[in-house]
Design a binder for these strands. Structure first.
Ligand SMILES: [Mn+2]
Ligand SMILES: [Mn+2]
Ligand SMILES: [Mn+2]
Ligand SMILES: [Mn+2]
Lengths: 218, 218
DNA sequence: TTTTATTTTTAGCCTTGTCTAAATATAAGG
DNA sequence: CCTTATATTTAGACAAGGCTAAAAATAAAA
């Protein structure tokens, strides 16, 4: 078994591995976990003992297949609980992350399996992120940032990069959620801002917005 | 805020206070929590500092009103989650306790409030135990043990004293659950055994069974 | 009322997970 | 290639929560 702290480290390293493709540095983990690098060194050495990651001094770490599976399972639980909170308890999508951070550590495979079924075996969480299956496999979809779209391109919102309540509430205000159709009406190359069409409305979005919204175009 | 360990102590002391009416001894807490008395002394002194219980050396402890409220809230969460597991995820009533032991520590008043509503504001958990309200008040019902019933008396099963999986599964086998009507057909004073009627069936129950089943007669 | 048994507390130690301060490796600049 | 800057690790400490062994208080017996 892995403690709550260990699970959180594995999850953080899993996410960092995807972002930066390759060894994850001690400082990167410390920053993400909001702890000190010295604490990370300690924990990473312990996790290496447990064979869930490989570690060489000063060289960074990489999850082992087993470590990756454990991390994916924590993420699976996090996202399933988020679906539960939004779909069944009617939370807003910007309110669920903190609670899911707690629920993701509940240990019971049977519970996860039944929860999954109860929710209708969802593929994505309320933020558009894919839910790993019980073996830790993730169905990756080709998505890109709205900022990478060209003028006149159409897409469907499939996720967010930034997940702060402020950003999610901004999207709510503009009636943008997972599944919303978006068309790029114009793009300003100087500052990366865009004019987009959403339903009947058309409005301006800054580059900061466009860089944090994932769309699927095809 | 109270840690998971602190919450578990408060809950244990709350339950012991009800059983033994009065100060709870260090040894009693240790036995219930499956820890050593010395550990209990440490924790009880810390909780006295936090004003959730009163403690005088060698004299035992009593919860303060605030401590009682905190304990009742943990129990509220435990029992609400048990209802969720049985009613929504179709667990058997003998399978839910361990998982609820974990879920009872999830911290979010909003979550509890929404869960309560989602479940239809239940008054009792799957074992017939009352669910405290958000202020920590418990609706006590007059119930008695089946063993205290006389011949020809009728009652409705409203709860169990023992909650082991073995006992609950025994009841399942005999088609006895919360709400089941029971009639005492005969009672053997020598060994406390009974013949009871449940639905169409009538069968023998030992004193041990009769002493662990609560019924409401009126 | 002594003596013995039981309960409770204290003292000291351990593990987990964190921190700060200091030491050491690696990276970057000149 | 040498020197400074940055990243990383080590050493030592601490708080939470547990344990064992010993001491002290209380309860029970003689
Ligand atoms: Mn989340
Ligand atoms: Mn999410
Ligand atoms: Mn229970
Ligand atoms: Mn119960």
């Amino acid at each position: 078994m892995f403690s709550r702290a260990e699970e959180n480290y594995l999850k953080a390293i899993y996410h960092l591995e995807q972002q930066i493709q390759g060894e994850v540095s001690t400082n990167a983990i410390a920053e993400r976990m909001d702890t000190k690098p010295s604490s990370v060194t300690d924990m990473v050495q312990k996790l290496a003992e447990k064979e869930v990651l490989s570690y060489k001094k000063y060289k960074g770490t990489l999850l082992t297949p087993n470590g990756r599976k454990i991390a994916a399972n924590v993420i699976r639980k996090h996202r399933l609980w988020e679906v539960f909170l939004v779909e069944k308890l009617n939370f807003q999508w910007d309110e669920v992350h903190e609670i899911a951070e707690q629920l993701e550590h509940i240990q019971s495979d049977e519970l996860v399996s039944r929860l999954d079924r109860f929710l209708g075996n969802p593929d994505f969480d309320p933020h558009g992120d894919p839910i790993p299956d019980k073996h830790g496999n993730v169905k990756r979809t080709e998505k890109k940032l709205l900022s990478e779209c060209d003028k006149n391109q159409r897409g469907v919102c499939v996720g967010v990069k930034e997940t702060s309540a402020e950003f999610l509430q901004y999207l709510d205000k503009r009636k943008i959620s997972i599944g919303t159709k978006i068309k790029v009406l114009g793009k300003e190359f100087f500052d990366g801002s865009m004019i987009i069409q959403v339903g009947g409305d058309q409005f301006f979005v800054s580059q900061k917005i466009a860089e944090n919204l994932y769309v699927q175009t095809n």
